[in-house]
C-alpha cells in the first residue's frame, strides 16, 4: 500500500485518502465556447507524466495538492492549496 504525505498529518497509508483528480483550471464560463466548456467538463488527460492532483485526507478532511509522476507512481511533493508550490 502506498504512503502519501498529507501536508497537515504527515505520511499516512493511501487508504486514508480520496483521489480528487488532476487539477484543471476552470475556463471562464462567460467567455468560453460550448466546445471548450464541454472539453473542460468531460475530457481528462490520461497522458502519463508529472501531474498536479487533488488528494483528500479523509480522516481529517484536508484537501491538498500532490505532484505525482504517474509513470513511476511516485509522489514528488504535497502542499496545501493557497500555499506556495514548494
Amino acid at each position: 500500500m502506498k504512503i502519501l504525505t498529507c501536508p497537515v498529518n504527515g505520511p499516512r497509508p493511501v487508504s486514508e485518502f480520496v483521489y480528487g483528480g488532476e487539477v484543471r483550471p476552470m475556463p471562464d464560463p462567460a467567455n468560453t465556447s460550448d466546445f471548450d466548456w464541454a472539453d473542460y467538463v468531460f475530457n481528462r488527460s490520461g497522458i502519463p507524466g508529472v501531474k498536479v492532483e487533488w488528494w483528500y485526507h479523509l480522516a481529517s478532511g484536508t484537501w491538498f495538492l500532490a505532484e505525482r509522476d504517474t509513470v513511476a507512481d511516485r509522489v514528488l511533493r504535497t502542499w496545501l492549496p493557497g500555499e506556495e508550490h514548494p
Binding site: V18, G20, W54, Y56, G61, W63, P81, G82
Partner: peptide, 13 residues
Amino acid sequence: VYRELQRWNAQWN
C-alpha cells in the same frame, strides 16, 4: 457533498 464543498472553497477562498 461536504467533501466537494470543502474543495470548492479551497479554490475560492
